[in-house]
Amino acid sequence: MRRIIHLSDLHYGRVDAALETPLIEAVTRLKPDLTVISGDFTQRARRRQFAQARAFLDRVPGPVLCVPGNHDTPLDNLFLRFLRPFYRYKHFINRDLEPVFEDTEMLVAGVNTVNRFAWQSGKVGTGRLRRLATRMEGAGDRLRVAVLHHPLEHAPGVDKRLMRGASAALEALSEAGADLVLSGHLHRAGAEPFRTVPGLLFVQAGTGLSTRLRDGQGNTFNQIDCDGEVLRITQWDAERGEAPGFFPAPPQAWQRGAEGWERLDTAGAGAPPAQAAAE
């Protein structure tokens, strides 16, 4: 079995500080094989905010794979945004904007979808898609996971513009045999197959720490367990009060069928590993 913890949209500069240690403690108890952070480490890409995000990263256990988000390039410093958009991200977080993690059971590849010329909406070009396909095509029978900040499909009712190249990215990922796509950006958690490519499972993480909550959702992160042909996805939700913490919701179990990913009856899919890990 492999376990991925999926965080996103920390937004240092607008965080709920009371949740920071409980989040680290919850992730540590779950003992992930890999922690993925799908962008927006900061609110305004300022050095102090990046330093705070770096301090958080240094507390995350085990290997970490991360990609930048649109908030990780300066909005109010046009010189940096257009000429050196990732200078601070590279200095504090990671020099590699499209990192890869692989072991005997999974290959996880990051994709940089930030568009310096359109701050809110992203883009993914043919060069990035070729690199991603090349990396995934050699994965064999391993789980193939793509990580990007901007989602490749929007649910009905989302009023943000879909990023440029999203359709081409879905086609390229499908042809490369990808199994799972992890995204953030919308501060909305969920898991479902892509409507246009049901052979790809789309998992979004909400915001782990930010006070910028949307659509009535609180702070969340995802736990993804791959056990053979079954993926179990558990959303962990923050609870505030005198002893704030993160607690698991009932897991979803997914298995790939002839028509794409199908949701299984959770009761028949085995005991949820999230609860066992948290005890």
Rank of each mutant, 00 (worst) to 15 (best):
G69W: 00
P32A: 05
E239W: 07
D40W: 00
L97A: 07
Q43S: 11
D265K: 06
L209R: 04
F247H: 13
Q275H: 10
H150C: 02
G177N: 10
A109D: 07
T234C: 12
P63I: 04
T28V: 08
A276W: 10
R88C: 00
A274R: 06
P99T: 10
H150T: 02
V60C: 10
R240P: 01
G127S: 11
Q49K: 01
M136S: 13
H150W: 01
D141Y: 09
R263P: 07
Q235R: 14
L143D: 10
E262I: 08
L186Q: 13
G218W: 02
R161F: 05
F56M: 02
G208K: 01
W261N: 08
M1L: 09
S38C: 05
R161G: 06
R130I: 08
E262W: 03
A109C: 15
V64I: 14
F101P: 03
G199L: 05
Q204V: 04
G125K: 01
S210Y: 04
D76W: 13
E192G: 04
L23V: 07
R2S: 15
N219A: 03
H149S: 03
N115I: 04
H187Q: 14
G13M: 00
H6K: 09
R14L: 12
L231W: 05
R164V: 12
N112S: 07
E279I: 11
F86D: 00
A191L: 07
E20I: 13
P244G: 03
V111W: 06
G69H: 01
V111T: 09
R161L: 12
C226F: 09
Q255Y: 08
V114N: 01
S121G: 06
A253C: 15
Y12K: 01
I233N: 01
M106K: 11
R88P: 00
A118C: 09
L97E: 03
G62Q: 05
A274K: 06
G206N: 03
R188K: 13
D96V: 11
L162F: 09
E242Q: 08
H187D: 04
A278L: 15
Q217E: 15
R131E: 11
R29K: 15
L23W: 02
N222I: 03
E153G: 05
P61S: 10
G69I: 00
A118S: 14
N115S: 13
E175L: 15
E279A: 14
L30V: 06
F246C: 01
E102M: 11
P61Q: 12
A139C: 11
P198D: 13
P151Y: 03
E105D: 15
A274S: 15
A26L: 13
A253M: 12
P193Y: 14
A172P: 06
R44T: 10
V147P: 00
Y12C: 00
G206K: 00
L80D: 11
A191R: 12
E98I: 03
A17I: 12
R81M: 01
G245D: 09
L231N: 05
F50W: 01
G140Q: 14
L186Y: 08
Q252H: 13
L186D: 09
P248F: 03
L180W: 10
I4P: 02
T104D: 15
E229T: 13
G13W: 00
M1E: 10
A109K: 11
R29M: 13
G62M: 05
V111H: 02
R214C: 04
G206Y: 00
H149G: 01
A269G: 10
A172Y: 08
L132Q: 02
N70G: 09
A139T: 12
R212L: 04
G257N: 07
Q235P: 01
P99W: 09
G122P: 02
R256Y: 07
I24K: 06
